Amino acid sequence: CETCDRYISGRVLEAGGKHYHPTCARCVRCHQMFTEGEEMYLTGSEVWHPICKQAAR
């Protein structure tokens, strides 16, 4: 997992080739988790909900 550096077994979320436990992938702006299939916007090592990234501009 990109966030906690632990092995992932079971469900995995992926953004930009990086992998996360579903509970570790959180938006840097709103701190909410991502749901399965939800779009993730990756900037460097930061993961955003698209609407949060747009609002931060």
Rank of each mutant, 00 (worst) to 15 (best):
Q32I: 10
K53F: 08
C30D: 02
C27H: 01
A25G: 04
R57V: 08
H49D: 00
T3F: 15
S9W: 03
Y41D: 15
C27L: 02
P50D: 12
E2Q: 12
V12K: 14
R11T: 11
I51W: 09
E14W: 05
S45C: 09
H19F: 10
E36M: 05
T23Q: 09
C24D: 04
H21R: 00
I51V: 13
Y20H: 01
M40A: 08
A15M: 15
M40F: 07
E14F: 07
K53E: 12
H49I: 01
V47G: 03
G10S: 03
T23D: 04
C24E: 03
C27W: 00
Y7S: 10
G17K: 06
E2R: 05
M33E: 07
V47M: 10
H49C: 04
S45Q: 13
Q32W: 04
A15W: 13
Y41T: 15
T3P: 00
R11C: 11
E14C: 07
R11L: 06
W48Y: 15
S45F: 07
D5M: 10
G16C: 09
G44I: 04
R29G: 10
H49A: 00
F34S: 04
D5T: 12
I8G: 02
E46Y: 04
E39F: 02
C4A: 01
T43M: 09
E14T: 10
A15T: 15
G37Y: 10
D5E: 07
R6H: 05
M40W: 15
Y20C: 03
C52V: 02
E46H: 06
R6S: 07
R57M: 15
E39M: 03
L13N: 05
R29H: 11
P50M: 07
P50R: 10
E36K: 05
C27T: 05
R57N: 12
C1E: 15
A55V: 10
G16Y: 05
P50H: 08
R6C: 09
C52Y: 01
S45I: 07
V12G: 14
P22G: 02
I8E: 04
C27I: 07
V28A: 12
E38V: 05
G44K: 09
A55D: 15
L13F: 09
I8D: 06
C24K: 03
E2S: 13
L42S: 13
Y41W: 07
R57C: 09
T3I: 15
C30I: 02
H19D: 04
K18E: 01
L42T: 14
P50G: 10
V47P: 11
A15S: 14
T23V: 05
T23I: 03
T43H: 11
M40K: 14
H19C: 14
F34A: 08
R11W: 01
E36Y: 15
I8L: 01
R6T: 05
E38G: 12
G10K: 03
L42M: 09
E2K: 14
Y20D: 00
E38Q: 10
G17P: 05
W48A: 15
S9G: 05
H21M: 00
